[in-house]
């Protein structure tokens, strides 16, 4: 039982970071039918903004994070939308897929070339002190990561349903044409979505890097897992992405411990196929009328 709780809590902490990355997928999909194959690299890069701020500009950890936030919003939000997505969207999903794959390579190679090919230690936001819960050893960091991710998601949900701008964004996501008629500034709403995605990527990056370390090719694994989490949970719902992320985090640990270490990453994949076959909209997703 202790073992099980240990695996569950660790899985939830890791899963909450997958969830942050997965939400990005669903946000961009909802707002602009963009499948971002560089999402993993979006989570990898901000950690290097922070490190560059600390090592090259001599900033403290806090100011470096602020700098990274600005850089993320500008590069991963604004520039990404204006330069790559806007011109490509009218041509359907495929050119976007190819362009974001290439973008992922570009980001990865730039970090390798201009920063380092080596993994970098990253300062921890929270103490690595451990406490014992029901016999399981849990670090303060794990709990903080879980709480921060969940409250970020809660805030986002509140913003989307509780504020005027948020509701306009949702209207845009559901039906851009109608939203436009109703006087919503659709373009601006889509831009907000991209900015939120960039900020979430930064958050995920800062939370995961102390545990996962910062390395140029971290996005490869992370992006795939976030993608699977988004599909399993429901590609068009934020709460689906959270459920998917947490579920994958936990299942991965349980599979490794109780099924097979060699096939641990097969279990989420099999789950993905089963879900698509019996519930294509994902666990918590809504059936989509729109044809792609």
């Amino acid at each position: 039982m202790t073992e099980f709780i240990q695996l569950l809590i660790s899985g939830l902490a890791t899963g909450s970071i997958y969830a942050l990355a997965a939400i990005g997928f669903t946000l961009l999909w909802q707002a602009s039918q963009t499948i971002n194959f560089a999402q993993g690299e979006f989570v990898m890069l901000p950690a290097f903004f922070v490190l560059a701020g600390m090592h090259f500009l001599g900033l403290g950890f806090g100011p470096a994070i602020l700098l990274a936030l600005v850089a993320s919003l500008l590069i991963l939000g604004l520039t990404f939308k204006r330069v790559i997505i806007d011109p490509l969207l009218p041509h359907g999903v495929l050119p976007v897929v190819i362009a974001t794959i290439a973008l992922g390579i570009l980001m990865k190679e730039s970090v390798k070339q201009f920063y380092s090919a080596e993994a970098q230690p990253f300062p921890a936001l929270f103490s690595e002190r451990t406490i014992t819960v029901l016999g399981a050893v849990v670090s303060v960091q794990d709990i903080a990561v879980l709480l921060i991710s969940l409250s970020a998601v809660g805030l986002l949900q509140f913003f989307l349903t509780g504020t005027k701008t948020g509701r306009c964004m949702q209207a845009t996501a559901q039906n851009p044409a109608v939203a436009e008629i109703l006087g919503v500034n659709v373009k601006r709403m889509i831009l907000y979505t991209f900015l939120i995605n960039a900020a979430l990527a930064l958050l995920a990056s800062v939370l995961i890097s102390p545990i996962y370390l910062a390395k140029f090719n971290n996005g490869e694994t992370l992006g795939l897992i976030a993608f699977i989490a988004a599909i399993v949970g429901g590609f068009n719902q934020i709460r689906g992405a959270i459920a998917g992320g947490l579920l994958i985090g936990v299942i991965d640990n349980l599979a490794a411990a109780y099924v097979s270490a060699q096939y641990r990453s097969a279990i989420p994949l099999i789950l993905l196929i089963i879900i698509i076959l019996i519930r294509p909209q994902g666990l918590l997703g809504k059936a989509e009328g729109r044809t792609v």
């Binding site: 490509l88 190819i98 362009a99 570009l106």
Partner: peptide, 21 residues
């Protein structure tokens, strides 16, 4: 040399933007 993959990725992005077909 070491920049070829970056250039390669850039070229693909430019190609997609200028000619998605």
């Amino acid at each position: 040399e070491g920049y070829y993959l970056m250039l390669y990725a850039l070229l693909v992005i430019v190609l997609m933007i200028s000619c998605p077909k």
